[in-house]
């Protein structure tokens, strides 16, 4: 039962609870019109203490498409925080007005503080470099809807595996399903953190291999999750220049991939995927953004206790 719960971290929900959300999201994808009044009269408060156009618009579009309404602020300077109000007091006050809260904050753990003062569901929409659970839900729905399963997949994650929180969450989430294998593609400087290797992969006996070049792994993959390799992460310019092309996905590398491999990216993309790849039917990153809205619709319905007949 998800009604009334908060979502602070990707692993807050069980596999069964996630299935409930994805089942509903897939029904919404198939017939969005059927859901346009299920949250009539419901109010979403978007508390964005730092700007994030993509995530905020995705949540707002999701609530509007369910028939509900939206209020909130999109940066801290236009909120009572600028006057020195605590997160606890801000959330407690807003919880008196709205039915569900979505919160983004630059400080890690801010939504957890807020959730302790909210008697309505609170969703973390990103807290600094810490957690971004609805991005993980987006990634998972895209995989499930396209591959029709979460099992027995070879998942390649490419780029900055050291600092990429979406990558860590995806690995943790997909490790809960049987038969999945991982291919970790990164330069030496940006390999997966030790705790993910030990606590998630080795502990659960997950098959994985670590490679340095995308070309050496792409042919085996069912899913390729791209992230950006940032110049400032490297110790010296020489290494960056030597390695950067290995982590840029282009049409030539796509020729090596399976016909049904899918390419995901949390966006925004900078130069790690060549624009020419956008034309490839396997490039799903813009569709992924749309699935992000659908999964947020399903999530908010579940947290509000709504179904096809409206809010119960």
């Amino acid at each position: 039962m998800l009604k009334g719960k908060h979502l602070l971290e990707p692993m807050d929900f069980s596999v069964e609870e996630l299935d409930e959300i994805f089942d509903l999201a897939e029904r919404i994808i198939e017939d969005p019109q059927k859901y346009k009044h299920v949250c009539d009269g419901k109010l979403l408060a978007t508390l964005f203490f730092e700007p994030s156009t993509r995530t905020r618009l995705s949540f707002e579009a999701a609530m509007l498409r369910l028939g509900g309404q939206v209020l909130g602020f999109s940066e801290a300077s236009s909120s009572s925080i600028a006057k020195g109000e605590s997160i606890a007091d801000t959330v407690r006050t807003v919880a008196a007005y709205a039915d569900i809260i979505v919160m983004r904050h630059p400080k890690e753990g801010a939504p957890r503080i807020g959730s302790g003062f909210s008697d309505i569901p609170l969703v973390n929409a990103g807290d600094g470099g810490h957690q971004h659970p609805t991005q993980t839900l987006t990634d998972l729905l895209t995989i499930r809807y396209t591959k029709q399963s979460f099992n027995n997949l070879t998942i390649g994650v490419c780029g900055d595996l050291k600092f990429g929180r979406t990558v860590h969450s995806l690995i943790k989430a997909m490790s809960r399903y049987p038969g999945n294998r991982f291919c970790l593609i990164s330069p030496e400087e940006l390999v997966i953190p030790e705790y993910v290797r030990k606590e998630v992969l080795q502990k659960n006996n997950i098959t994985f291999r670590e490679v340095r070049r995308l070309e050496d792994a792409i042919a085996d993959l069912d899913v390729l999750y791209m992230t950006r390799v940032q110049r400032e992460r490297f110790f010296n310019e020489e290494d960056y220049i030597r390695l950067k092309d290995s982590y840029i996905l282009d049409a030539d590398k796509m020729k090596l991939a399976k016909e049904d491999m899918i390419v995901l990216h949390p966006l925004p993309r900078v130069n790690e995927i060549a624009v020419e790849v956008d034309q490839d039917s396997r490039a799903l990153y813009f569709k992924q953004a749309r699935y992000g809205m659908y999964v947020r619709m399903a999530l908010m319905m579940k947290l509000l206790g709504a179904d096809e007949g409206g809010v119960n």
Partner: peptide, 27 residues
């Protein structure tokens, strides 16, 4: 970067994650 650096009244809560290495994790 932790929220406790700005939220004055928030209690500092730590949970034990490894008795052997005596490691605690910030809530």
């Amino acid at each position: 970067r932790c929220v406790t650096s700005i939220e004055a009244n928030a209690p500092h809560v730590f949970r034990l994650i490894d008795r052997e290495s005596q490691e605690y994790r910030c809530e």
